[in-house]
Amino acid sequence: MIAHTPKPPYYAVIFTSVRNDLDESDYQAMAARMVELASQQPGFLGVESAREEVGITVSYWESLEAIRQWKAHVEHREAQRLGRERWYATFKTRISRVERDYGI
């Protein structure tokens, strides 16, 4: 689903990952929980995600402070730890300011 974002500027956190296929247990549940939890955070605007060989999740935020607060959230920190230890062969997080958006 395409996120419905407000008029720019706002911020995008782009999380790109490659799974290691070593530990599937609890991954899907944790991913769903993170979307549920992020959507409850102040400043959260929406999320888009796709997974094939490379997984890409883009979350949208009102401010850099909202992103910092999400990064520091206790459950999110636990998911980050598990991702590093169990689920991802590699990952990259990029934070960008959205200056323009358009579409149909």
Rank of each mutant, 00 (worst) to 15 (best):
T5F: 00
I104Q: 13
E99H: 15
V74P: 11
H76M: 08
T57F: 06
P42G: 12
P42T: 08
V74K: 15
L45A: 10
Y11S: 06
R51T: 02
A12Y: 02
Q80L: 13
R81Y: 04
L22C: 09
E52S: 14
R86I: 02
E36S: 13
K92Q: 11
A32V: 04
A29F: 09
H73M: 13
I14L: 13
S96P: 06
S63M: 09
G83Q: 07
S39N: 11
W70K: 09
K71L: 07
E99R: 15
R19E: 03
N20T: 07
R68L: 04
Q40P: 01
R68V: 01
R77G: 01
L22M: 06
V35D: 13
R68I: 03
E75A: 12
M34D: 00
A66H: 03
L37K: 13
Q41M: 14
I67K: 04
S17K: 09
L37Q: 09
E48R: 09
S49L: 06
Y27T: 04
F91D: 01
F44K: 07
E36Y: 08
V18K: 15
A79R: 07
Y27R: 12
A66W: 04
M30Y: 03
E52M: 12
R97N: 01
R86S: 05
V98H: 09
A3W: 02
I14D: 03
E65V: 07
A89E: 09
I2N: 11
P6E: 06
F15A: 00
K7Y: 05
V98T: 12
T57I: 08
H4R: 14
T93G: 09
Y10P: 01
H4K: 15
T90F: 05
E62A: 14
I95H: 02
P42M: 09
R51F: 01
T57D: 08
S25C: 08
Q28G: 07
Q28N: 13
S49D: 01
G83P: 04
G55E: 04
R19A: 10
V18T: 14
E65A: 11
L37G: 02
S49M: 06
D26G: 13
E78Q: 14
R97E: 10
S39R: 14
T57S: 13
P6G: 11
M34Q: 00
V13C: 07
